[in-house]
Structures are given as structure tokens and as C-alpha cells.
Write a protein that binds this DNA or RNA. Structure first.
Lengths: 148, 148
DNA sequence: TATTGTTATACTCTATAACTATA
DNA sequence: TATAGTTATAGAGTATAACAATA
């Protein structure tokens, strides 16, 4: 089927699955391209979470990224070696550790995001004004879908 | 920023990046959920390519999925062990191998797709008719974006 | 006793290099 | 000589199980 023949919700689901999957892969591919430090998905996701929520613990990060605690331990070790995060004692619980992104860590997350967004913004400029306005209307709906 | 305040193309790029990335992860997560045979991304992508284009060679599959030939050799070996594809001599070139998905392979690819689309179709039914029509208009534009 | 985090160990996936068979 | 595919081997990432420190 082609996307110009979307009738039922089932057809819409198929068209969205294909387009969203391919677009997400294309956006993700922009990370590796530009000589930035290579981080795995888990490492990057953990660092991005720390940029957003400061002083998270390894357990919270593991839960957040749906990996097992030992996997997060390893990811954190790599990020610490590269100076992208620091550890501090947890204020109340001596078993836990409070992690914080360094300035270098925050900067790296921003650079990667800018790369991805720049690629997408270039593609958007190649669309017609009408196509862009369709996407502008769709963005909040896609966001809602993604949160369900 | 929230998606209700999308003004510039840069803002639109940010909103789309976030929503598309999250939605793609959510759709992909439906594969593992339901007791189907576990296949890696490369294995599944190779099998899906064989469902679409019959009698591909290992080299074509490797090129198609952007992996090195030895990685595809391994993926093919797993798919063959599980009875999801079969090998045949290449008609002209004895160095090459012609691969074909078995009935079981085709069936598995369809089941995984149905799972993902069913999840998405359920989410779509929770939207208003107007939201669905916005997505219906956006699907071809997203498709075009993803192909650039 | 339960929980947080780490270490030990094994499995999977991918890559590069070397090899075999065919063109 | 060059090409298609495979085998050998190593590196990165994740998981389960076992352990130490703390609650």
C-alpha cells in the first residue's frame, strides 16, 4: 500500500509504523556521523537523563533506561572515565550514589541534539509551507501517541 | 518547550525529534513482548528483506542492512537453523547463494508486524476523529521526510 | 532481612583479517 | 587478480548470579 491511500485506522497504523521507524533510524544515524565521542545508546541516554534531572542514582537510571543495574554500572564507569559525569555521596543513604553531568557532559548532549535537529531542520526546509503546517499540527498528536 | 508552542522550523524539528524517537522505541518494544521467537535487529531486517525481495544473496543483504558480510553470514546461519530461510545455488555464479524466506519465515515477519500495528491501532482509537485526520494528512509527509 | 551497588562470568552481536572457491 | 562468502578472533554491550555495605 502507498501512503496516498490511507483509509482505515489499520492502514494509518501501517503507514505511521513504516514512516516513523525509518525517520527515527535516519535521525539517530546523525549522531555517529560527525566526529563526536562515540557513546552507546545506554551511555547517551543515561547522560541525557542526568542533564535533565540532576543527582540521579544508578538504580534510578537503570530503571529509567530499562536495563539491569550491572549494565548501568558499566555505562556509568565509562561516562566517569571520560569526565562526562561525577559521583557524590548520597545525602541520606550511604548505599546510594548521586550522579551529576559535568559541563562537558551537558555540552556533549547538546551538541548531539543540535546535530540531529539541524539535519531535520534542513529536511523541513525542503518541504512546502503547507507540508510544514501539516507537521506542525501533527507534532502534538505524535507526542501524545508516544506517551501512551 | 512544549509542543503547543511550535513556531519556528527549529522548534518543529525539536518536537518531531522527541516524539518520533519515543514513538519508534515504543513500537519496537512490542516485538519482544509476546512470546514470538527472539530475533536480533539484523536477523529480523534480513528476514523482512527476504520476504519482500526473494532470492537475495548474503552480500546484497549485508549492503542493504549496512552491516559487514561476516555479520550477515552469522545472522543467516541463525535464520537457517530456525527454519526461517533456505539456501539455493545461485543460477549463474557458483560463488553466490540465493536465499529465500520459508513459509515459517514469512509468517513470523507478518506476526511481528501485526503486533506492532495492533498496538498502534489501539492507540489511534483513543484519539479524537480530528486528531486521527491530522495524522492521516501527516503520514505521507513523514514518509517523504524519512526518504530524504 | 531487604535494598543498593558492584564484581564475576557468560552470551550475543559486530567488526577486521585471513582463507577458500569461483570468476 | 578480483570477488563472494566463510571462518577465526577480538571488542563492546547486556544479562544473571554472587557478594559487600548499608538500611
Amino acid at each position: 500500500m502507498t501512503t496516498s491511500q490511507i483509509r482505515s485506522d489499520a492502514d494509518l497504523a501501517i503507514a505511521l509504523r513504516i514512516a516513523v521507524g525509518r525517520l527515527a533510524r535516519r535521525i539517530r544515524a546523525e549522531r555517529a556521523a560527525k566526529g563526536l565521542p562515540e557513546l552507546s545508546d545506554t551511555q547517551f541516554a543515561a547522560l541525557a537523563a542526568l542533564v535533565r534531572h540532576t543527582a540521579m542514582t544508578p538504580g534510578e537510571l537503570a530503571e529509567n533506561e530499562k536495563v539491569q543495574p550491572p549494565s548501568m554500572t558499566r555505562a556509568i564507569a565509562v561516562l566517569e572515565e571520560r569526565g562526562l559525569l561525577t559521583r557524590a555521596p548520597h545525602p541520606r543513604d550511604k548505599r546510594q550514589v548521586a550522579l551529576t553531568a559535568t559541563a562537558a557532559g551537558r555540552s556533549l548532549v547538546e551538541q548531539v541534539r543540535r546535530l540531529r535537529e539541524a539535519w531535520l531542520a534542513r529536511r523541513l526546509r525542503e518541504l512546502s509551507a503547507q507540508e510544514r503546517s501539516v507537521l506542525r499540527a501533527a507534532a502534538p498528536v505524535l507526542d501524545k501517541l508516544s506517551q501512551s
